[in-house]
Design a protein around this nucleic acid. Structure first.
Length: 700
RNA sequence: GGUCCCGUGGUGAAGUCUGGAGUUCACGCCGGCCUGUCAAGCCGGAGGUCGCGGGUUCAAGUCCCGUCGGGACCGCCA
């Protein structure tokens, strides 16, 4: 009872302390943000009423997200991509003794630990094992674990189960004294590994056969209750709150796993590139602004007020100059920055595996990149994908309507132009291209309302309209059925292999529009979540050299960039039929996500001149805009080509995530803000004056 | 620049269409009970300026306008 009294008083005191602490913490948080200064939007964020998280996601989205999470977990369990990462200890040779002297110094982890050796990341001066390490082999050993207190299950004064958690997993510790430990306290627990009593094994935990008993608990740091549970339930928490407390979000298994998949991918990519003789070379972050491409982040120069650096949107020009420099094979895990609007698959800053090689053809580049991507996939999933297939851009457009086809599902575009060659139906007559897709069993799933929405969607994508046909036993249920001849109706049915109950969607327009609209609808209606089904890697090759006409200048726009080599078979057409010229440019696509792109570059001045001319760029303009880049070629540029793929996207898909923010430790929101650091913040007037800058009042 | 969805105790939701007292549910938190639990259980309690501002109304979480914040998408991303 004496002890209980102590506990009570300790808790009472804690309650008092906690009350003050809470207020103090909130105040401190505001103070911190106040110190950062900011615009009206940010000062609004700092208001007390905004201090507490107050934004919740809506039911449907959340339910979907939760369901998705469950499915994903199942799926991952099935494919088992992360076991090697999560439970590296499993790979230890049984019987090999573990080091468990608290004094044992442990040096830094090698980049590629030999899985056959004891994991050097395990023991430290303070612990003998990580929380996910212990198995039946350790029974009888006295161990020390360090970590955060997860769930506690108290059964009166002499028995409490504490789930001790670190990045590696959870171990149940049986505490029979009354130390006051609460959620997320940082503790060190020393005790003896023992068998769990019969019937109490937890099969859902890798450590579930054992527990640590006779525990001595040292509280290393008390902690306030977290704003959300540090487990899978936080998947449903508003992302803004997760980002505000990212350091807590990252404690969760899912996020730890994602960080480690990312590290494994990085490591595998580096190894694969180095094995192939590529040299990692860093290129500058402060670079000149380049005339073409994405909007750049500008960095003002202090030494030269009024002049600016740009942050690189890619190391493109440097890597090509490295080829001129005779490096032969370059690669870099390159941070790239683009000031364009953010999306689920786009952040301001992102990582690319950037590479370039000399004296090569397309096959050499594709082989080298494939090796690196497949090695990364194997590292993350434990399974090496089959060789990557190739299709041409034209085939991708015709069959899937997009240049980044998701080939995990069918619903391919079907050619119908010839069916309606002499149609009476005005909407189809004279259309450049008519194609359709079949939504199996879609007739019942799509009511009038949804079909109207699909039509709106098609129109917003540039189509003049959308024809829908519900397949019935005798024919079509459709507003346009009466305009189709019997022969046309029969042909449509046969071509699309339509069966009763299907929904058919038909678009008639210019070829590009028809493809694009149906390709988008195909994705809208048929695309599975990114983590489902097989991984379908595909090289899309033979991109057109020019795509579309620039609205402002009236010139053709380069499909990849203006230094891309035209396809040798099409070089003759650069002047006569530029839009028909293919290029040696290629994209790598995974499950409908563009992972990256590359090309064989032009290294001959004459060909470059012809392409510039086709692009409407005069010699003067070329010299002015690209001289700094192309003049070095005159000192001897080797034939070369390269590629870059986005690591964030690759990791996201391999981790089963729909959003690259989930595989970035500290991402930005869609508006480009970081709720944790509250960036961006307004600049100190002194900084501005040093840089010779003045902020204009907001235009109204 | 545009379209759409969403802001309700610490967290997630219901309530909003059809205005009538801050109502409800789950988790968490605080206290009590509890010796084999494992997202423990039982009992009790605290906690909200319904994002913010304006309007309509006798009356607004609910209707209208604006605004801030989050998300998805179009434009943009050579």
């Amino acid at each position: 009872m004496r002890r209980r009294g102590r506990v009570r008083s300790a808790r009472c005191e804690r309650r008092r302390v906690r009350g003050r602490h809470h207020r103090g913490r909130s105040g401190a948080g505001r103070h911190h943000r106040d110190a950062a200064g900011g615009s009206r939007r940010r000062s609004c964020l700092r208001e007390p009423e905004h201090e507490e998280p107050d934004e919740g996601s809506r039911s449907q989205r959340c339910r979907l997200r939760r369901d998705h999470r469950v499915d994903r977990a199942r799926c991952l369990h099935r494919r088992d991509p992360s076991v090697a990462i999560r439970h590296r200890a499993d790979h230890r040779r049984p019987g090999r003794p573990r080091r468990h002297h608290p004094e044992s110094p442990v040096m830094s982890t090698p980049a590629l630990p030999d899985p056959a050796l004891p994991d050097p990341a395990s023991a430290t001066s303070m612990r003998t094992h990580r929380c996910g390490d212990l198995r039946r082999e350790q029974i009888g050993e006295t161990v020390s674990l360090c970590g955060w207190v997860g769930r506690r299950r108290e059964h009166g004064e002499h028995l409490a189960f504490v789930d001790l958690r670190d990045h590696s997993g959870i171990t149940q510790c049986v505490v029979d004294n009354d130390v006051d430990v609460r959620s997320e306290y940082v503790v060190r627990i020393t005790g003896v590994v023992r068998d769990r009593p019969a019937g109490t094994v937890n099969e859902s935990l890798p450590t579930g056969e054992i527990e640590v008993g006779e525990c001595t608990v040292e509280v290393l740091r008390r902690a306030d209750p977290p704003p959300f549970p540090i487990d899978a339930r936080a998947d449903g928490v508003d992302e803004n709150i997760r980002l505000q407390y990212r350091y807590l979000d990252l404690r969760r298994e899912r996020m730890q796993r994602n960080l480690r998949i990312r590290a494994a991918v990085n490591s595998a990519v580096r190894t694969a590139m180095e094995r192939q003789g590529f040299v990692e070379i860093e290129t500058p972050m402060l670079v000149p602004s380049t005339p073409e491409g994405a909007r750049e982040f500008l960095v003002p120069s202090r030494k030269e007020p009024g002049s600016f650096y740009a942050l690189p949107q890619s190391p493109q020009l440097f890597k090509q100059l490295l080829m001129v420099a005779g490096v032969d094979r370059y690669y870099q895990m390159a941070r790239c920055l683009r000031d364009e609007d953010l999306r689920a698959d786009r952040q301001y800053e992102f990582m690319q595996m950037d590479m370039e090689m000399s004296f090569v053809t397309q096959d050499d580049v594709l082989d080298a990149v494939s090796e690196s991507v497949l090695a990364a996939a194997e590292a993350a999933t434990g399974e090496r994908p089959p060789p990557i297939e190739r299709i041409t851009w034209l085939e991708a457009m015709n069959r899937f309507g997009v240049d980044k086809p998701d080939m995990r599902f069918a619903m391919e575009l079907t050619e119908l132009t010839d069916v309606f060659a002499s149609t009476e139906f005005k909407a189809f007559a004279g259309a450049g291209s008519i194609k359709g897709i079949r939504v199996p069993g879609g007739a019942d799933q799509y009511g009038r309302n949804q079909l109207d929405k699909l039509t709106d969607r098609a129109k917003s994508l540039g189509a003049k309209g959308l024809v829908w046909l519900k397949v019935t036993d005798g024919g079509f249920d459709s507003p346009v059925a009466k305009f189709l001849s019997d022969a046309e109706a029969a042909d449509v049915r046969t071509r699309l292999e339509a069966e009763t109950g299907d929904l058919l969607l038909v678009v008639a327009d210019e070829w590009a529009t028809t493809c694009e609209v149906l390709g988008t609808l195909r994705n809208d209606l048929g695309r599975p979540p990114v983590h489902e089904g097989p991984y379908r890697y595909v090289w899309v090759v033979e991109f057109p050299l020019f795509v579309g006409i620039d609205r402002d200048s009236g010139r053709p726009k380069p499909g990849h960039h203006p230094f891309t080599t035209p396809h040798p078979d099409d070089v003759d057409k650069i002047e006569s039929d530029p839009m028909a010229v293919r290029s040696i440019a290629y994209d790598l696509v995974l499950n409908g996500w563009e992972l990256g792109s590359g090309s064989i570059r032009i290294h001959e001045p004459e060909l470059q001149r012809r392409v510039f001319t086709a692009l409407g760029i005069s010699e003067d303009e070329a010299a002015r805009k690209f001289g700094f880049f192309l003049n070095p070629f005159d000192y001897g540029a080797p034939p070369h080509g390269g590629f870059a793929f986005g690591l964030d996207r690759l990791v996201a898909i391999l981790a089963g995530e729909e959003n690259i923010r989930e595989v970035i430790a500290f991402p930005k929101t869609q508006s480009g803000a970081d709720p944790m650091t509250n960036s961006p913040v307004s600049a100190d007037p002194k900084q501005l004056s040093e840089l010779g800058l003045k902020v204009l009042p907001p235009a109204t």
